[in-house]
């Protein structure tokens, strides 16, 4: 990290060209792996959120890199019941293939009482709050029912383990939108999962803050330095299997960001594979359009996502 003496510009260029710099993806990978191992070393009640989207799938892949093919903590998915069906199929297929300790949770009460946007009873922000934020809080705390995949039957069963998860690894990136650019790699939340931005602890070099008062809930963000383009470049390099919704399957449309079916719109794009997406992001039509532009809840009020995040939204 510390920079040495400056060299002559021409020499420096030749130096790069030959072999000095590790590929930028290698650097990102090395840092993320370091953070994952640090989390595993320091925290017992650990889990990883898997939204099925590209970012948390890259995070899952990095975990397998960090632990040499193993995933030593459970993966938690919050099922809003409005997810696009392909997402659930893909989740369960990988869970079986990779022998993941797969858990999902849901806000059964809100769904039973039809307190949802698709049912027409609440607005989008409230719907996110009930089906995602609330469901997540209750799943993490163990108050809500957890469903765990039984690998001998391939089916989900009610998980008997009600221990709270106090460390949660998530795939947030700093470039997604404003509030995420101020996150730390290890970021404490209080008991209500709220985030105090002004009182964040210092993090220096690769010494993260890993000491917390009992009861502290923690978010761990190994992908903070990655950009959307880095994610796709890495998916391409590593041949990571990605849910097919991200690709144009013949109708000139694809999803750039995945969420619930009623609130996530596909974008006009003819990118049919990972390489075409990388090209599209580098120099094509999306090189300057924000990724979450297809997410309706961000537009509901000027600080929609920020308000949700303070209250514990991922």
């Amino acid at each position: 990290m510390v920079v040495g003496t400056s060299r002559e510009p021409r020499m420096r260029f030749a130096y790069w060209k030959e072999k000095m710099i590790q590929n930028h993806l290698d650097r990102l990978e090395a840092r993320s792996v370091h953070i994952l191992r640090e989390a595993y070393r320091e925290f017992k009640q650990l889990c990883m959120l898997w939204s099925i989207g590209k970012d948390s799938t890259v995070l899952l892949w990095l975990t397998r890199k960090a632990f040499f093919g193993h995933v030593p903590f459970p993966l938690v998915h919050i099922d809003t019941a409005f997810k696009i069906p392909e997402m659930i199929e893909y989740r369960d297929r990988l869970a079986r293939e990779w022998k993941l300790n797969m858990i999902f949770g849901t806000n059964k009460t809100a769904l039973d009482e039809k307190q949802t946007f698709p049912d027409g009873n609440v607005n989008r922000i409230m719907c996110c709050k009930f089906l995602k934020t609330e469901a997540l809080k209750r799943t993490l705390s163990g108050e809500g029912e957890r469903y765990r995949m039984n690998h001998s039957t391939g089916k989900y069963e009610i998980d008997m383990n009600k221990e709270p998860y106090t460390g949660v690894i998530v795939g947030a990136r700093a470039d997604e939108e404003g509030s995420r650019s101020k996150e730390r790699y290890f970021s404490p939340r209080d008991r209500e999962s709220e985030w105090d931005i002004a009182e964040q602890p210092p993090e220096l070099w690769n010494q993260y803050k890993t000491d917390f008062a009992p009861g502290t809930h923690l978010r761990i963000h190994p992908l903070l330095d990655w950009t959307e383009l880095n994610i796709w470049e890495y998916i391409e390099r590593e041949s990571i299997p990605i849910v097919s919704l991200y690709f144009d399957r013949g109708d000139g449309k694809r999803y750039r960001s995945l969420g619930c079916a009623p609130c996530t719109q596909p974008v006009e794009s003819t990118a049919k594979n990972v390489h075409e997406i990388v090209e599209e992001l580098r120099s094509g039509k999306f090189s300057r359009i924000a990724e979450r532009s297809g997410r309706a809840q961000d537009k509901e009020d000027s600080g929609g996502l920020e308000t949700l995040r303070r209250e514990g939204y991922m």
Binding site: W16, H24, A174, D175, E177, G178, S179, S181, K182, I197, A198, Q200, D225, T227, G303, E306
Partner: peptide
Amino acid sequence: ALKDEQEQGITIDSARCFFKSGNRDYI
């Protein structure tokens, strides 16, 4: 990017942004 920061008019935390120039990605 954050509401309360606009109100105070000061940067509370280190905010990151990204840009490219030459063959570098700057953070």
